[in-house]
Design a protein around this nucleic acid. Structure first.
Length: 255
DNA sequence: CCCGTGGAACGTCATAAAGT
DNA sequence: ACTTTATGACGTTCCACGGG
C-alpha cells in the first residue's frame, strides 16, 4: 500500500517503505557543506557512491528540493482520522476506507506539481512521439540539469539508465496488425476474431510501453526522494550542531 | 564449471484514476 | 458512461557474483 503512505512521505521521508524489493536503497550522507550565510551547496553521497550537489540546505524559508504541498498531508490525515472515528457506526464500510486508501499517486503529476512549485525540481517529460526527430531505435534521453547533477554529471534523474533499457522495444507488432481492416469491413467470424486479436495485441503493446514508462518515472521519483532524504539529513545534522553551539553559548558558566 | 541467490528489468493482469 | 492511461502485484527471465 505504498500509495497510501505516499501522501505522508514528504513529511516523513525516511519512513518511506518500499516492499517491492527492486527499489530498496539507503542514502548515506558524506555531508560537506558551506558555513552559515553562504549560498549552501552541499555534497551528498548516495548509496551508489555517486555524489549529489544539493542547494539550499539550511535556508528553511525557501522550499527545498522536493517540497510537497502541505495540503495533501493535512487532507490525508484528516480523512484517516475521520474514517477511524467512524468506527462507532460499525459498518462504515471497508469499501469507503478502501476507496480512500487506494487513491494512487501519479509520479508524473506529483513531480510536475513539485517542479512548478520548486524551480530546482526537474519535470518529467511527457511521452515523446517518434515524429519529434529522434531516431526510431534510440529513445530520447533528456538529461535534466536539476538537483541530481553531480560533479561527474552522472547522477541525473534519467541519465543513468542502463543501455539495455534505452533500446527500442523488441516486441513490435507484426506489420500487418496495425494496418488491419477498417471497422466497417468486418463480416466473418474469422475477421472478427482477427480484429479482437489485433485489438488485444495493440492493448498489450501500449501497456508494455506504459509499464516501462511508469517504471522509469518511479525510479526518477525514488531518486528525488533519496535526494530529499539526503538533503534533510544534512540539514538535520547542521541544525543539531547549531543547537549544540547555541546551548554552549547560552548555558550559565559553572565556575 | 556448475549451482544457488539476489537484484534489475520485463510482460501481463487488474483496477484506480484521468480523459472524453 | 465509456475509454484510455497509469500503476501495483505477480511471475519470469537475465545477469552477476560467490561458494563448493
Amino acid at each position: 500500500m505504498w500509495w497510501h503512505q505516499h501522501n505522508l512521505c514528504f513529511s516523513h521521508p525516511i519512513e518511506e517503505d518500499y516492499s517491492s524489493g527492486d527499489l530498496e536503497k539507503k542514502v548515506s550522507v558524506a555531508g560537506s557543506s558551506t558555513g552559515r550565510g553562504s549560498p549552501a551547496v552541499t555534497l551528498v553521497q548516495l548509496p551508489s557512491g555517486q555524489t549529489v550537489h544539493v542547494q539550499g540546505v539550511i535556508q528553511t524559508p525557501q522550499p527545498s528540493v522536493i517540497q510537497s504541498p502541505q495540503i495533501q498531508t493535512v487532507q490525508v490525515a484528516t480523512i484517516a482520522e475521520t474514517d477511524e472515528s467512524a468506527d462507532s457506526e460499525g459498518v462504515i464500510d471497508s469499501h469507503k476506507r478502501r476507496e480512500i486508501l487506494s487513491r494512487r499517486p501519479s509520479y508524473r503529476k506529483i513531480l510536475n506539481e513539485l517542479s512548478s512549485d520548486v524551480p530546482g525540481v526537474p519535470k518529467i517529460e511527457e511521452e515523446k512521439s517518434e515524429e519529434e526527430g529522434s531516431p526510431p531505435n534510440i529513445a530520447a534521453m533528456a538529461v535534466p540539469t536539476g538537483i541530481y547533477q553531480t560533479s561527474t554529471g552522472q547522477y541525473t534523474a534519467t541519465g543513468d539508465m542502463p543501455t539495455y533499457q534505452i533500446r527500442a522495444p523488441t516486441t513490435a507488432l507484426p506489420q500487418g496488425v496495425v494496418m488491419a481492416a477498417s471497422p466497417g469491413s468486418l463480416h466473418s467470424p474469422q475477421q472478427l476474431a482477427e480484429e479482437a486479436t489485433r485489438k488485444r495485441e495493440l492493448r498489450l503493446m501500449k501497456n508494455r510501453e506504459a509499464a516501462k514508462e511508469c517504471r522509469r518515472r518511479k525510479k526518477e521519483y525514488v531518486k528525488c526522494l533519496e535526494s530529499r532524504v539526503a538533503v534533510l539529513e544534512v540539514q538535520n545534522k547542521k541544525l543539531i550542531e547549531e543547537l549544540e553551539t547555541l546551548k554552549d553559548i547560552c548555558s550559565p558558566k559553572t565556575d
